[in-house]
Simulated scan of single mutants.
Amino acid sequence: MLYHLLYPLHTAFSAFNVFRYITFRTIYAVLTAFLICFVLGPWVIRRLQRMQVGQYIREDGPQSHHQKAGTPTMGGSLIIFAVALSTLLWADLTNAYIWIVLSALLGFGTIGFVDDYLMQVKKRSKGLSARGKLVLQTVLALLIGWWVVCQQGFNTQVTMPFFKDISPDLGWWYIPFAAFVIVGASNAVNLTDGLDGLAIGPVIIAAGTYMIFAYVAGHIRMADYLQIHYVVGSGELTIFCGALVGAGLGFLWFNAYPAQVFMGDVGSLSMGAALGTLAVVTKQEIVLALVGGLFVIEALSVIFQVGFFKMTKGRRIFRMAPLHHHFELKGWPEPKVIVRFWIIAIALALLSMSTLKLR
């Protein structure tokens, strides 16, 4: 919006020429989203408290978690608002990819909001059924995948990290592949959201990493130099990534241990889907498994735990899944689990960025 209002003035006032630069607008998207969360955070928390939207705590979980019962949840709605408003203010709104990623954020956020609303406000014990939630996610992700593939100049090849000459072309099969990436990322972030600040930290790291990927993929000279797929218009997603980083930092101010608010499914499902969509658009689909490696580890710990439990009729691999609860039950203090998982997320993000050169 500001881009469209102010950049045309550069013909009369040269100072407005800065609005043409993605880097300039990204910096202010970060700051805008951060300030929105920072300023509105206390009001949102008070509002959620008045609505008695309190977090439910599992009876079989770590005993230290029971003191968190009643902490306001659904704070992810603040993140969505901050990201969407900041992106609309600073991005080029004629860019289709901006609307695609915003649709993923808002669409999956709506699914998460309904789930949280049924569970926290209507006091249904399980919210949406797991099957119903998965069906809604899959349908929405297929639509997003179709929308991406229909963009002019977008190719349906899959980029393989570390190999520049291996890029299988999936054709129309790319749509279900994209849907798998988006739904997988959404649920992986959701499973990771179990401790104060545990999920939002790696989300910020992943968004910062895709900020670099988006800028490079949308810059024809850089893409050619690094021998990666050039995606026309994807550079504008740098601004969306910056908004996600800023909103994440603003939310972390209130979500850091001990948390004053939790993001809920409305936050975790939407941010995971946004990361999955960014991976698809920037042609860094497989690399998402590295960028969000922590989310993958957490999701796999649940899959392996459930599978092993069923196969062995009651035996377990971990003391509790997802994995962060296993370390809590081993005696690790919650802040130690959180910070160490953040360190792992940073290391994996650095490894993923090395794939730009190691090809």
Score class of each variant (00 low, 15 high):
C241V: 04
A299G: 09
T312K: 07
I111R: 06
T73H: 07
W99T: 12
T71S: 07
F240I: 12
F341Y: 13
S234D: 11
L89P: 02
L106N: 05
Y257T: 14
P168N: 02
L128S: 04
V135G: 03
G267K: 04
F177Q: 11
V83Y: 13
L48C: 13
V18Q: 06
I27M: 13
Y56Q: 02
F38T: 04
A247Q: 06
P333M: 00
Y97V: 09
M320V: 07
K330Q: 11
V287C: 02
L134Q: 10
M211L: 14
Q151F: 01
E236C: 10
I79W: 01
L93E: 08
A130F: 01
A141Q: 08
S234G: 10
T156M: 08
T110P: 00
K123P: 03
I36R: 01
I317E: 04
I200G: 11
L102G: 07
G54N: 12
I98E: 05
S77K: 02
K164E: 01
Y210A: 11
G145E: 00
A321M: 09
Y97F: 13
L294Q: 03
L105Q: 03
I100W: 04
L244S: 09
S129N: 11
G197Y: 05
N95P: 04
L198H: 11
A199L: 14
I22V: 15
A223K: 13
K330Y: 02
E59L: 04
W173G: 02
H65N: 10
P335S: 08
T277S: 15
G132P: 07
Y225C: 12
C150N: 15
S77C: 12
G242P: 15
K126H: 15
I98S: 02
T238Q: 14
V101S: 14
F327I: 15
W146F: 10
L237A: 00
A256P: 06
G272T: 02
Y7R: 05
F108R: 08
H4Q: 15
I346H: 00
S354Q: 09
V189S: 12
M119H: 10
L2E: 03
I100E: 10
L252N: 00
L170N: 11
S352F: 08
T209W: 03
S86C: 14
M211K: 10
V53N: 09
H66Y: 06
I338G: 13
W172G: 00
S234A: 15
V189H: 13
N255W: 05
G235Y: 04
I338Q: 05
L142H: 05
I98Q: 00
N155Q: 05
K68R: 09
L269Y: 10
T11N: 09
S186I: 04
F154Y: 15
F16G: 00
F251S: 13
R47K: 02
R25L: 12
F34G: 11
Q49G: 00
W147F: 13
N255D: 09
L358P: 06
W43A: 07
S354H: 01
Y210T: 07
R25V: 10
L88E: 06
R50T: 09
V296E: 00
F309E: 06
F262M: 14
A29Y: 08
R131Q: 12
P72C: 12
L348P: 02
